[in-house]
Amino acid sequence: MRGWLSLLAIGLLLAAADSNAIEEQPKLSGLEFVSPETRSLQADDASNPGMLWVLRGEQLWQEPAGRSQASCASCHGEARQSMRGVALRYPAFDAGAGQPIDLKGRINRCRTDNQDAPALEHESEELLALTTYVAHQSRGMSVPPVEDERLRSVIEQGESLFRERIGQLDLSCAACHDDRWGQRLGSSPIPQAHPTAYPLYRLEWQTVGSLQRRLRNCMIGVRAEPFAYGSPEFIALELYLMQRAEGLPVETPGVRP
């Protein structure tokens, strides 16, 4: 308890002394800002409720789907090997579509193009379970730098969205998560907004949800019209957040209040 409180205190000092971009400050997972109870919930797989989605994803991985009657496993084999590190590369450039695609978009593309099955709905149990399962295979691995040159302009677009003031409260993502992390909004500490624990189990939601669901909550919070699920703006934001989190380990499934 004392550990994370003093960490926050340091954060406050830093934030007061220097309101520059996050790159110049220590990168801290959102886990550093939650209570010890929530932290131990995430740490123990036998009590982390997000593991129920990992388990469900593991079953779906083996289930034949669509007219092809192929399962994910028919092509990709053991996810433990084939999906290791894959989530670190997303959002990635999709040559076929000529634009970037995020992990759940990739899973749905696989369904429609390869399994000949209908796409799964955003925030559906199945899509969340599969995405959580695939991302979980990268748990503990650090986010690498983005090297694909085709993504440069998208990262820039994501960064400008991150810095743009929006909504009736006229706040940008950066106003809270770059400039005021470690301080409090109401009773909640403001984290640095890294995407590395998603999909994650939020106690408020009482279920697992995607990064886009969280981003929509933030946008509604500042009284802005949220982007639609799967919109190019969200993919750009996700990509910017991912490269901003470079070096942090994947935690999926994370647990947050």
């Binding site: 909004l185 109401g186 009773s187 909640s188 408020e204 939601w205 909550n217 933030c218 509604i220 919070g221």
Partner: peptide, 10 residues
Amino acid sequence: VTLAACVEDL
């Protein structure tokens, strides 16, 4: 029980 900021249903 503390109240969170930025909850989903406003």
